[in-house]
Design a protein around this nucleic acid. Structure first.
Lengths: 187, 187, 187, 187
DNA sequence: GATGAATGAGACTTCATTCAT
DNA sequence: GATGAATGAAGTCTCATTCAT
């Protein structure tokens, strides 16, 4: 695997997360990645292509992290939520900036159908959990989109605080946030 | 009555909320507002100026909506929260797209010191409520930035759903969201 | 004669002389003349038209001033030069900024054939004097264009100094300049 | 050898000299230089930057040409004037259009402090010569600004004639002009 | 007649993308 | 394969000119 590809990926993630797609220029990425501007076009067809590949990759990894919790086949909903939350936290740790990036770009006009699909699949996995919870009266009887909005909206906002270093990530903090979000969802 | 000014304001709000500052071009705004591109510059010094005026105006109105609840000098925290939430809901109704706009642009590089200040003042008002609640053990003992992130992050995300018509705004929905968010904050 | 016409004329002269044609905008002229921008178009077909009318008028007046000296039918060349020089000085006094204006705009692309013609006629009058002087070995045997360049170039440059108040216009100064320029021309 | 840089420089010099800064557009320069419009911005930060670089370079070269005459440490004023004049002529030959350019832009609003300074230094060198000459009663007792205006104003105007091919540059012509200007300055 | 709000052509400038080296 | 100089489409903004009031 050519290292340049990874360098470009990392630089893009960082810059897109920080400044957003439009405010990030190809020369910026090239400089941050220590490659020539033209080199980027060896690995990605276009800037749109680059952002879509990034988006798809990190959305998929996020999904994986969340699903890893499920594979345990735990039964209690509170426990399943714990695994989901843990997955989200682990993802955030393994991929700093990735959540900011996903949050900032999930509505972008540049996203392809495939990218939107991947994102939808991510939300679907959470939906399933929530719907099952609703069926067993463990989760509030709210529209699943709304529940996801509260969960993801709140969590991502907290992640941005951490990534912007406005708040320090501690065990206590995470436990508190987890409990808060669980309360928001559960009956 | 300077109708054009209002037309430009409305068109900008709509487009900025939908596509974001960078992805919205002056010709787009002009076309949506049914004015010539040059006309925009009779009313606003620059695109940056326009976005800042929009931002300040709606942040201030948002603040007003929230503070109107307080003037009642209610004592119970749950009740105070109800008024805050109501203020937010009323604001959303009076100014469709304004919340999406604020959410999407509150971190923009183009924001002036004054704009950032106004936004900070908005958060401060909520902070005061939360800190008082924490002092009386009504609100979870989490960092206030985190509490705000959960409250605002969740609420704004729900608003986007409504504005994108992915969810219908009903009395039941709002009550459910209010209860969910209160649970997220309260002990 | 409507006073507005004169107001616009004066304001234009001042601004064109100071900043040049391109750097002077119609709104600037309107403001300086205390009229609306649209009013200018009642009196002049276009900005080009305005600058051409100004140019023609002041070149013609300059020509008149110079020719007034000749009408005396003096015979000595030094004396005729004195009258020419006096005419130039008088013109400068009656029309501050007009010489700067003429100097700065005599090569402009916006000048019409008629404007160029008037300017040429001005130079021609001086040419005649110089050619006659050359014929009588009173004036240096240089190309007439060159003699004019030295005379007009030097004189105009001195006028700009006076108009920019880098030098005070005194009797002594004028006598000195006249003598200097006569020496430049005469044998 | 960055040929494009030179191409842009030459094209700019030509167009600025002919039409002036304001009337010269970037597309014009690009077309004349046979480069894309964007290319100009690889070499110059802005149009203002371009004109200032041009100005400083040619003013400095002009100064060098004039000072080369002085290094001979000649004693007679007439002889020193000859070297100055020769320097000016040589500069004109090496850099066609540069004198027209300098003349037309020496009062521009776009000039930076550094550009103005360079120009002032050029005039200062001539001033020193003139002041020394005045002290020894070789040069007319006129304000030095006025003397410079006559010398430079006359010379530059003649140069424009040559560059516009309204007059042919011959040895005889130059001797005549030199003599004429010397007469204008000397007692 | 007088005004100035409105317009859009065109200016300067940026930046995604290509291609010769 | 890697580079970055070169390009031109497109963005922001200005300003001569028009026209409803």
């Amino acid at each position: 695997m050519p290292s340049k590809h990874q360098d470009i990926f990392s630089a893009s993630l960082l810059l897109f997360a920080e400044k957003g797609f439009d405010a990030t220029t190809i020369p910026m990425i090239a400089k941050t990645a220590n490659v020539g501007a033209g080199t980027i076009y060896r690995y990605f067809k276009s800037k749109d292509d680059l952002v879509n590949e990034l988006f798809q990759r990190y959305v998929s990894e996020f999904l994986t992290c969340i699903q890893n919790g499920f594979s345990n086949q735990t039964t209690g909903f509170r426990e399943r939520f714990h695994y989901i939350f843990n997955g989200m936290v682990k993802f955030r740790k393994n991929h700093p900036h990735a959540l900011s990036f996903i949050k900032k770009h999930s509505q972008g006009d540049f996203l392809t159908a495939e990218s939107r699909n991947r994102y939808k699949r991510l939300l679907d996995v959470i939906s399933v959990f929530l719907e099952e919870g609703k069926a067993e009266h463990m989760i509030r009887p709210l529209n699943k989109e709304v529940l996801i909005a509260i969960l993801i909206g709140g969590f991502m906002e907290v992640c941005e605080l951490i990534e912007n270093q406005q708040v320090e990530e501690t065990e206590t903090l995470l436990l508190g946030v987890e409990e808060s979000l669980w309360s928001a969802l559960s009956m």
